[in-house]
């Protein structure tokens, strides 16, 4: 009956934590010391090793939200919603950082923090959609309904991503084209590709570690909510029984005196 609460101690959690730690240290070493300086962009190019893996994780996170949301609407198992909401939260954190690091790279390279190009705009809109995902959860009191509505937003939001991307790109091509200096070009030295791969791996492990931890928390929260609901019910029952008992007692004592 009592709620669970198993944090950190599991093998999966420890394994992911160690894996993330080790690969992240290697990735950081490669980012700053192994990868060569970009001749065109200078040091700021190294933001790329942070930015690109985070962008990939952001999209992966929302893909997981999409799949888990469909699964929730079909199966109605709370477990799927726990996966979706954990992944969405971590995804929102990563998306925020993708936008921030992208802007900080854009300032010295493009000369501006923001360009209304397809990729940037899509990421920004994605961020707003998932903000809505959490807002609708927060504003609905009934948990089951909140899960259902959030799942709907998760599904529509993800399908919307390629559509937004396409519409913004079309809109751009029919607009005066801004001068966007494309980074690097296709000819990237092998050492940069290796660095990027290790960084991707590190961030993927980090993402799964965060989602895993967050899922345990959400699970425990749900179980605690169930528990306090059950306790409240039991208490209400007890109170009703007591009242009935009292009433019966009063009646019988009255009967005796009469």
């Amino acid at each position: 009956m009592s709620p669970g609460g198993r944090f950190g101690g599991s093998l999966t959690g420890i394994g992911l934590a160690i894996g993330t730690g080790v690969t992240m240290i290697v990735a950081l070493y490669m980012m700053f010391l192994y990868a060569p300086q970009d001749s065109m962009q200078g040091p700021v190019q190294r933001v790329f090793y942070l930015h690109l893996p985070m962008a990939w994780i952001a999209y992966l996170a929302f893909f997981i939200v999409f799949v888990a949301s469909i699964a929730y609407l079909v199966k109605r198992n709370r477990r799927w919603d726990q996966i979706a909401r954990s992944s969405a939260e971590v995804g929102l954190v990563f998306t925020t950082l993708v936008i921030i690091t992208g802007s900080l790279w854009g300032r010295p390279i493009w000369g501006t923090f923001w360009e209304w190009d397809a990729r940037l705009t899509t990421t920004l809109i994605l961020w707003f959609i998932y903000l809505g995902y959490f807002m609708i959860r927060a504003y609905i009191s009934d948990q089951e309904r909140a899960m259902r509505y959030a799942a709907v937003v998760g599904i529509i939001g993800f399908i919307d991503v390629p559509i937004i991307h396409m519409s913004v790109r079309w809109w751009r091509t029919l607009h005066p084209e801004p001068i966007v200096t494309q980074s690097g070009g296709p000819a990237m030295p092998d050492s940069m590709i290796y660095t990027l791969s290790v960084s991707m791996l590190a961030f993927t492990l980090f993402f799964f570690y965060l989602v895993y931890q967050k899922m345990l928390i959400e699970q425990a929260k749900d179980e605690l909510a169930d528990y306090s609901l059950a306790m409240a019910d039991a208490e209400a029952d007890a109170r009703t029984n007591q009242a009935i008992q009292q009433h019966a007692d009063e009646k019988s004592t009255k009967g005796v005196t009469a």
Binding site: Q41, G42, V47, H51
Partner: peptide, 29 residues
């Protein structure tokens, strides 16, 4: 601000956000 400052700003903000997020997950747990 020069080129390198933006690099450190980007890394600094990212790790700060991660640290805060990890801390919040930990305190929730």
């Amino acid at each position: 601000m020069d080129n390198e400052t933006y690099l450190f700003l980007a890394f600094g903000i990212s790790w700060l956000v991660f640290a805060v997020y990890l801390w919040s997950i930990n305190s929730q747990a």
